[in-house]
Structures are given as C-alpha cells and as structure tokens.
Design a protein around this nucleic acid. Structure first.
Lengths: 219, 219
DNA sequence: TATATAATTTAGGTATGCCTAAATTAATTT
DNA sequence: AAATTAATTTAGGCATACCTAAATTATATA
C-alpha cells in the first residue's frame, strides 16, 4: 500500500499536468510546500514503483497505473467534499481542508455509500469534476472569468478550492457553481469586473476573477 | 500535535486501565500488537509530554491531560462508528475498523455535526458508552453473560467490537444491544447457554458469551 | 537464600520523509 | 563561446516509530 505522502505526490502531479502541462521537480515541490530535493527523493521512489516516468531534468509524467491512483484519490477528495457539504452542512470554505485528511483513509465501501447517498454526482461543491469509479473524468469547457467582456452572460462553473478566505468572499456574493451573472463593465488597465448577480451589482477584483471559471451563455 | 501512534497508546492505556486495572508494558504491547521494547519507547515519550505517569517496572497510568485526550479519541471512535452505522448503513461488523482510521483525522467541527445529526447519542452500535464533549462517561452496570443462570431474563447492553466474525455471528441471532432474551438452560461444566430470543431458541457457546454484557431484568 | 524464570529496559538497526548544503547540469546572457 | 544564473540532484542529517537481541531487574520456586 502507498503512503499518504506518495498519494499526495501522485495527486499533485496529475493536477499540475492538467494546469501547466510539463511538471518539473521545482514546480511540484513548490506546489507541495516541500524543498526540491525532497521532491527528487519521492520521484525516485515512485519511479521504482512504476507509478511515474522521469528523466533527469526533464520533469515527471504519470504512468497509467500512477494516473489511475491519482484519479482515485481525487475522486475520494471530491466526493468527500460534497458529502461533508450536503450531508453534514460543512461550509464550502471548510470542506477542502477536511477532505485533504480524510481522502487517504476512507474505504471504497464507505465511499460507495456516500456516492449512492449523493445520487452519483459529477461535480464537487467548487464545481470540480468528480472522476467516476473507473477514473473517467468529464472534461470541462469552462473559460476563466478574466476572458469575459462587457455585456456577456455566463454561469459559474468552477472556483479554486484551496483558499478558504476567497471562498467565503465569493459565498457572500452567492457566487457558487450554477449561479448566473452578466458582466456590466470591465475596467481598463487590468481593472476589476462589475457584474450583475440576480439584480445586485457586485465588483470583483481581477485577482479574484482569475480563480473563477465560467460557462459562456449564448444569447 | 500528537501522532496517531501516541493517540493509540493513550486510548489503549485507558481501555486496559478499565479492563484489567494495572497496565504493564507487556500487556500494553500485546494489546497494540507491538513488541514490549517499542511500548517502553513510546511510554518514555508520553512521559516527557506529561501524558502518563510511569515508574520502571511499575506500569503506566494516565495523567489528567492524558486521560482527557484518551477520552476524546474514544469519543471520536464511537461517534464515528454510530454515524457510519446509522447515516451510511455500514454493517456493525465493519464500523470498528473504519472508525479506527478516521478517529485520528476527524475535526471537532465535523464531529459536532455528526453528534447533532445523531441526536447526541450515549452509546455506539456495540453498546459502548460515548463520552460527552467534556469527557464524561456514563458508567455501565452491566454484567457478563457468563454470570447468568437458568431462567434469568435480561437485555443485551454491550458486545465486544473488535472481532467482526463474532459480530456477524451475533447479528445472525439478532443479538444487538437492546435485544431482550431469557436463559433457558446453562449446560454444566462450562458448557454453552441455551437462550430464548423472541420465541426462537438459540445456543450460545461459552467463549462467545464472554464477549456479551447484559443488564439483568428484575422479575 | 540461591537460582531459575519472567518482565522490562537498553542498545543498535530499519524505513519513511523531511531538511540543508554542496555539487552538478541546463539555460540564459553577453 | 564563456560566464553567469537557475534548476536539479546528491550527500549527509534529523525525527518518528517500528524491530531484534542483549542486558538488567523483579519475582517465583526450590
């Protein structure tokens, strides 16, 4: 069986692969709040287990086995987040941290029961897709909010789940996945967005907008 | 913060103190499936943290702080067992193992939410008392089933939770906490018990009976 | 009381996973 | 192309928590 640390590495490699493409030792270390030397060590270990491919100075890639494990952990994490949110009423800015600990110890049996309770959901409380039991992920087509122009209408698809202060902030505006809004104005020179949510006018800073992904609503 | 291993030691010391009085290094090691030398090492560590009192060759005792932590972990464990059983339908012979992993990572917040969901219960699915938030445990007055004589009526109060084959066996007879039965016959020479449960006649071996605790029903 | 047995502790070793500092390799600048 | 800078790896160390084997201390028996 894998250690918690090894599982975290696989999960992080998967996520970084999605986000930035090539995963260097340095990027990985930074993401995990660990020194590059420590990442090198774990990468070597994962390589002997045939969970990653790695050539010196060329970055890491997951093998099929490694990817399957990464997706399994991500599934644990996101199902747990949704379960904590829906079944126990944990506020959405707290579920990430909680799930981070539980994802390594939850059994497949308990997970299956939560999945059933939730009605086999496909997205967590932040809108991130939940891989199914076979590791199949539904691809999102969302665009970053920063790509929007004045007048465009859209629906929140996903928000970054790691910063709980940000989540509380978004929650106060009702900016949950599924919420529709329209861009009233985009201030020039990388300025903030003024948007309309259910008749209320709200200003969203550019830094915040970077963490919001939306589905464009045609006409 | 304490390591999982340290928490397990404190919990085990508390349970053994209840069951056998004095807790020797050897008894503790055996209970934790660890060699005595390893127990010595951890005891020393817990002593420097002022969580246990210990004199060489004289056994271990919990300090007030140590006892409070032990009760907190036990509370986590038993609330989790009941939650898994009631909210997710995990069979009672599986909840112990599951809770054993979760008890070290569950937050006070999530625990409080489970507690509320369950209506502030006082016993887990095996009948063991759940300490309250302040570490107060309701003392049981149950007697071992092996103390019963022919003709006595009683109600199951608690059964040992560690052996899942035993629990499946008891479950097949409906021998859950709260179930009433009457002793029809006690076979001589340490023989089995024949009992009546809701009109059905069932034979319970002596070894099994040792793991069942009952409340005597007067009259 | 002396000796044998049992319990406990010490000593030394393993593996994980982190660290810092130094060495190496790659990439960028001039 | 040479030199500087940045990224990565190696080397050596620390803490946890386990192990076995040997030494010590306590207890029971003759």
């Amino acid at each position: 069986m894998l250690t918690h640390a090894a599982e975290d590495y696989l999960k992080s490699i998967y996520k970084l692969q999605e986000k930035v493409g090539k995963v260097s030792t340095g990027i990985l270390a930074e993401y995990l709040n660990v020194k590059p030397a420590s990442a090198t060590g774990m990468i070597k270990k994962l390589k002997t287990m045939k969970l990653v491919k790695h050539e010196r100075y060329q970055g890491v890639t997951l093998t099929d086995t490694g990817k399957a494990i990464a997706l399994e952990i991500i599934r644990h994490h996101r199902l747990l987040e949704l379960y904590l949110f829906k079944a126990l009423g944990v506020p959405w800015d707290g579920v990430h941290e909680e799930a981070e600990k539980l994802e390594h110890v939850i059994s497949e049996d308990v997970e299956a029961r939560m999945d059933e309770f939730l009605g086999y959901p496909t997205a967590d409380p932040h809108g991130a897709p939940i891989p199914d039991k076979n590791g199949v992920v539904i691809k999102r087509t969302s665009i970053p909010m920063t790509d929007l122009c004045s007048g465009q209408s859209c629906v929140v698809a996903e928000v970054s789940d790691t910063d709980s202060a940000l989540l509380r902030h978004l929650g106060s505006f009702n900016l949950y996945p599924g919420t529709a809004f329209r861009v009233i104005e985009v201030a020039p020179f990388e300025g903030p967005f003024t948007i309309d949510i259910a008749g209320h006018q709200v200003v969203i800073g550019r830094e915040v907008a970077k963490h919001i992904f939306v589905d464009d609503v045609k006409e």
